[in-house]
């Protein structure tokens, strides 16, 4: 028992060290966001922001906070749309063996290779014609194109691991395909749901290309576009650019930590229940 506690404590320490190493660049970004212009290229660099300047943060807090809500809205919208589209498709590919599934799989693969800028330029024409330029939900549609092929492939990979017996049993119990999907497949695939949600949220949150091409003139713009304000015509205000990134990532990071805790708890509970 004590050795177990000891080991757990040792793991925690190692975990903290690893996380610290991983997040060093993030720390460095924060450090830069606090560094006055004249010290940014100081050699050797200051390891700690000893003479912090908060001008970047002040500017960002004054200008950018409303955009956070838009980013959140777009992120959650993208998660929803991605799940709705990709979970049933992943199930079909993994378990229903439709003819032409291989071809569809390849198409999904190719779809992911289309560079973002090409997609964005394609959307430009499509959005103009549909009249959904500069709307936040148009951006949700665009952002989910990054995540949908990913989602389908992840769901297919995870759902192919569900034992067929489980599904046959449901069939014997008289459940139709849809019911089998919602009552058995989805709950068992909780991990895949979490993974896909996580990445679709992250992609939408940090997207720049689509936002810039399709929503630059909109009234509801995500926070990534806020960085623009600090990109002068000849000069970049790196304090403020970095500060925007820091401020934009704090609420999302909190959300992630909470979600992970919830999910971790849910998965354990689920495992017992199953």
């Amino acid at each position: 028992m004590t050795s177990r506690v000891l080991r757990s404590r040792r793991n925690t320490v190692i975990g903290i060290v690893l996380t610290a190493v991983m997040l060093f660049p993030v720390y460095w970004m924060i450090n830069v966001s606090l560094t006055p212009q004249q010290d940014m290229r100081k050699s050797p660099p200051d390891l700690l922001p000893l003479h912090p300047t908060f001008t970047g943060y002040r500017a960002v807090l004054d200008d950018q906070l409303p955009y956070l809500w838009v980013s959140l809205l777009i992120g959650l919208g993208t998660v929803t749309l991605t799940l709705v589209l990709s979970a049933p498709a992943g199930y079909a590919l993994a378990k229903l063996r439709p003819r032409g599934a291989g071809l569809l799989g390849l198409l999904l693969l190719i779809a992911q290779m289309v560079p973002g800028i090409v997609m964005a330029m394609g959307f430009y024409g499509i959005f103009l014609n549909l009249g959904i330029m500069n709307t936040w939900w148009g951006l949700v549609v665009a952002d989910s194109t990054i995540a949908v092929p990913f989602g389908v492939m992840i769901f297919a990979a995870f759902m192919s691991g569900i034992p067929d017996e489980l599904l046959s049993a449901a069939k014997v119990d008289g459940a139709n395909l849809w019911r089998t999907f919602t009552a058995i497949v989805l709950p068992v695939s909780r991990n895949a749901v979490v993974t896909v949600s996580l990445f679709s949220f992250l992609w939408a949150w940090s997207d720049f290309v689509f936002a810039n091409t399709l929503d630059a003139g909109g009234d509801m713009r995500p926070i990534t576009l806020g960085i623009y304000k600090y990109i002068g015509n000849n000069n970049q205000e790196w304090n403020a650019i970095m500060a925007t990134a820091v401020i934009a990532s704090i609420p999302a990071a909190v959300l992630l930590v909470l979600a992970q805790r919830y999910v971790a708890a849910g998965v354990t509970a689920g495992a017992v229940k199953d």
């Binding site: 090409v118 964005a120 720049f208």
Partner: peptide, 9 residues
């Protein structure tokens, strides 16, 4: 202007 390649719609 992100991501590479080509352009256009």
């Amino acid at each position: 202007a992100c991501c590479a390649l080509v352009g256009a719609s």
